[in-house]
Design a protein around this nucleic acid. Sequence first.
DNA 1: GCCAACGTTGGC
DNA 2: GCCAACGTTGGC
Length: 154
Amino acid sequence: MAQYWLMKSEPDEASIDHLAAAPDQTLPWTGVRNYQARNFMRDAMQPGDGVLFYHSSCPQPGVAGLAEVVGPYAPDATQFDPASPYFDPKSPADKPRWGHVSVKFVRKTALLPLATMRTEPTLASLQLLKPGSRLSITPVTPEEWQAVLDLLEP
DNA sequence: GCCAACGTTGGC
DNA sequence: GCCAACGTTGGC
């Protein structure tokens, strides 16, 4: 059974437009350095799962489009690259600490702003909206997923 | 730039 | 294992 996720990305780094323009319209979701978020990718995500593509740390934060998970979970090469901002000197080469799935473009939508989401009773349970929630990957229930779809245009 | 919330680190 | 210090996130 398909599951649903919300994945945050800074549009400066990887926006929904970047995703649409990428080879195979797919991007590796590298750079996650939080165990909870990693565990979602490693243990729970399945190819075909639905993704709300969320723009964060930008003038207009919000859901910018839809994507889907493509597998498999694989080691994140950036952890071993000293030149990368995601370099992790403590990650053992034979037992990589960090990994990633990839994400494939489904469609771009009109931005559903965070401010709007906050006013929607049907979205009140979203983990994203919980005070202090910073996790870059959060699960979304089927009900929440449908509620967001209903709000997305077109 | 501010700041609250949260995660990680490291001394003990 | 505790917990204070520190770093990061991310909206505003």
